[in-house]
Design a protein around this nucleic acid. Sequence first.
DNA 1: GAAACAACCGAAAAGGTTTTCTTAAACTCT
DNA 2: AGAGTTTAAGAAAACCTTTTCGGTTGTTTC
Lengths: 336, 336
Amino acid sequence: MTGDKPVTLAEVAAQAGVSIATASKALNGRDQVRASTKDRVLQSARELGFTPNALAKGLLSGRSGTVGLVTHDLEGRFSIPILMGVEDAFGAEKTSVFLTDARGDAIRERYQIEALLGRRVDGIIVVGEQTNNRPSISAGIPVPVVYAYAPSDNPADCSVAFDNVGAGRLSVEHLIACGRSRIAIITGDPTYGAAQERAIGAQRALDEAGLKLVGEPTFGTWTESWGRGATRLLMAQHPEVDAILCGSDLIARGVLDALRERGLEVPGDVAVMGHDNWEVLASGARVPLTSVDMNLEQLGRRAATRLAEAIAGNPHAGVDLIEGRVVTRKSTAPLD
Amino acid sequence: MTGDKPVTLAEVAAQAGVSIATASKALNGRDQVRASTKDRVLQSARELGFTPNALAKGLLSGRSGTVGLVTHDLEGRFSIPILMGVEDAFGAEKTSVFLTDARGDAIRERYQIEALLGRRVDGIIVVGEQTNNRPSISAGIPVPVVYAYAPSDNPADCSVAFDNVGAGRLSVEHLIACGRSRIAIITGDPTYGAAQERAIGAQRALDEAGLKLVGEPTFGTWTESWGRGATRLLMAQHPEVDAILCGSDLIARGVLDALRERGLEVPGDVAVMGHDNWEVLASGARVPLTSVDMNLEQLGRRAATRLAEAIAGNPHAGVDLIEGRVVTRKSTAPLD
DNA sequence: GAAACAACCGAAAAGGTTTTCTTAAACTCT
DNA sequence: AGAGTTTAAGAAAACCTTTTCGGTTGTTTC
């Protein structure tokens, strides 16, 4: 099967006994072609297994019907759902997606974008590795660019990001709704905007409810062992805590472990809440873990939609924020 | 930046004061063009920011310089490293990768492959969701197809898969080398070839060493809670066990948990070994977990290489097996 | 019966690049 | 100086599709 050249429109036309022009019209549903002729062409196309050459079409129309997806975190859990959302949204409208992984390297990124432009993509989506701002690359690029997850530092660009402040607020509101009032925060690396912003959102929600955070938010690393260590410290200094808001599900796993070792019940004595809704971790936890889902697939779809709009001539400036959603599991069950 | 049409070769030629043909030759390093002329053309190209139109090139040569990557498990941890390997291998040789996700649906797959063929990809890689055999789709597809992770059921196709039998053997050999002799197996879903084959490989290695497995391999689900439950059962029936070989790192996490609760030391009393080398899980475990890495990135690179060979006219038939590698951590430290 | 009209179809150009073939110019040698 | 040879550059075809516009039927209207 590997040798035969693809069937061309000319061959279809020949078999149907019409001109190339007529065959084209028939296949594209143009009028100006008799029904019987159209059927004959369609029949021939089917028999020969004709697939129109997208290259030729793209060359002619100036639109390739492709987009580039430049990610920086292919191994990470965050870019994958985004990528799924993008693929999903574009797949539906007959646009194909080129995938490249720049691995956090700006030189690589530049090179790959050059390659994508050579392929005449109609637009580009750049997926960052963190939620921190990232430098804009839109200058000098002749097609629309949308930044996903990590927004561009240029407000004139179009970005789609996650609402970390809102997530912090949502989490605290959920804990309060579950009857908790002495809430502490154990989160990850303080250089991550995500960690800072979520803490800020949490603080705001507490303020509005007239509550005070127990201690200060403790920053550390995004690991289980940090979750364990921070919990031991926290419970020693503030045994009154009745809820711990964690910066990630992984941290929350460590927190759960440490609490169990200390003989504390979850959610009876302390409620625990994670972030990311990493399914396998959250529902497999010893006490299934309530967590904030970042709706990353939706984020990807939104980015795709924005790009499609820009390609169609309606660009959008500024940052679109995607809201998280609390996925309730046992670790925050309301007190009786 | 969004309006301007891309620069064409004709414009470069005009600015350099030569014909299109000469410009083309100069840019492609053909001889038959004077050095000074060549310099002039290159200079113009740089000034105008010329990027050759890959669509036109592909249309002419019949080679688009693109390949399609059809995955069935985009959200899964297994396809991502494979995808990275593929992207890596092709990125190096100026081939771009179209990504599509068929999500386990054969209809979707068929449709997406049709779309890829319309884009005149030079080849296709199909990434399966499990290691079980999958139906061949090569018939009627005019470009080479390589099956990654899940091999094709047609031995005439080219597949690249993981050596599960070998992995089972490697694991047991490692445990024996660490001084263990009473080994039990707790693994996942019995409908997964991976689970069965690894058990078989383990059995063989035991046979060769003149040892017997403790009990029968216990199949269940790929979850932590199954790991916990199976461990309780196992230790009740066979307290003599000194090593547990797990079907996945997640199961191993459950096993570790249950052992700790039972007051058993790892690795002092029992060694535990996982599979997948899921970094965050394995090294974050309470006792860092020895695990088998499937070298999936290498698998992806191999698949890409095989596809490149086939495109170049040297197709390869049969299944390439990629070996795993034991990543040693504390959970299997040798006995003193 | 001629003119206007509709319906259907085909010729040709366009899109950007590579390659082959031809031509023009410059050189070498006797 | 003229014939032969090398070198540099250009003209044009080819890749495949879509679209515009002109042409050929056959049909209606006065």
